[in-house]
Design a protein around this nucleic acid. Structure first.
Lengths: 200, 200
DNA sequence: ACATTTCTCTACCATATGGTAGACGAACTG
DNA sequence: CAGTTCGTCTACCATATGGTAGAGAAATGT
């Protein structure tokens, strides 16, 4: 096994555990057991638990950024198609790996320093999204609104629905493949309706 | 001070601390310090931390249920007005006391038993909401969709936007009174647009 | 007036936790 | 080949944590 493989395995295990259970509910011992190494090995690669959390968030932010960028590039020029492509790009990892978005929810609970760096990582993407929404609203292709708040609302809707399986179960939903497809379709229809300009 | 006041003060402090920081990040000592009593006093009123968490969630569920019921009764017959009243009813405590909805997010991280009881508490309300949405969709007053998923999406949007201040800050939003009003207005417009039946 | 109950407290316990120190074997370097 | 570095480990540490036991004062009941 190549040097550094252990580091990647630690990041993978930590991402899943932090995202599903919450940072404070997961000890270094639990992560070490999951990876199959000693706790000291974690601390060799990451000097402290905070450093590990930071690394995990940066990696998640990078992965999301890359996925979103790729989705934007491959979508058509229609803004609603682009938004749909972004939602699909975000929703796909959320379904395969719920911990990924669940992890982002942890940011508000961590130290301000961690939150700041995380925001900095995603800021270019967020700024481009807001500028894009403003332009399309000006062109009349997206419903007139505050683009910053619209970006926040879209994000909140997607991650909210993707990271709270309890909510869906409480309305009778089951995490089967067919139900997941219907959920994604309904989510996309919901957002499309929310953003479509109206004819008065 | 009347007997039982201590119990209420414990519930209030625990709700705020659990909701803001997360259940696992808050120790019994921290809650005790906030209330101004000994840890043993907490354990006198609630035999274990799990019991305290359970009590806090049940109280929150009851409070939300009461607020939502009142909002529904006072709204007009128009379904979009009713949904707006419910969103206002949920959003108001979220703004005054962010911990309340933040607490509900903890449910998915707690033991299945706790989650089950919490769901049971809110089930009558959820079932009525779904039946109502179905009826109004049938009458053509709400956009045709799966009422269960629409209920889940509305909830996810409201709580998502209300409980992740980091997301809003990342799009340049500040928690001032004016900005809160604009956020609520934008949220309501977003949901109204998402639910309005379209004319083809 | 005395007994009981209620509600608070301190002291204590066993375990969990994040982190430190140094040992050791494998890989690498000169 | 010897020295160095890397990456793993066990043993240990100080503190945090959820919970138990019993003491004591105030309130309540007989």
């Amino acid at each position: 096994m190549a040097a550094g493989d252990t580091r990647e395995r630690i990041l993978t295990a930590a991402t899943d555990l932090f995202g599903v259970r919450g940072v404070d509910a997961v000890s270094l011992d639990v992560i070490a057991a999951e990876v199959g190494v000693a706790k000291q090995t974690l601390l060799y690669w990451f000097p402290s638990k905070d450093d590990l959390v930071q690394a995990v968030l940066m990696q998640a932010a990078t992965q999301l950024g890359v996925a979103i960028d790729a989705a934007i590039r491959s979508a058509s020029d229609d803004p609603l198609d682009r938004i749909e492509a972004v939602v699909r790009a975000v929703f796909r990892p959320a379904v395969r790996r719920p911990a990924l978005l669940g992890l982002i929810r942890e940011v508000s609970r961590l130290s301000p320093a961690v939150g700041e760096r995380f925001q900095s990582e995603l800021r270019p993407l967020v700024d481009r999204a807001i500028a894009y929404l403003q332009k399309e609203m000006d062109r009349g292709r997206i419903r007139q609104a505050d683009p910053r708040l619209i970006a926040g609302l879209c994000y909140a809707t997607v991650t909210g629905i993707a990271t709270e399986p309890e909510v869906l179960r409480s309305v009778g939903w089951q995490p089967t493949t067919a139900e997941l497809r219907r959920l994604r379709a309904e989510l996309l229809a919901f957002l499309r309706a929310a953003l479509t300009p109206h004819v008065d």
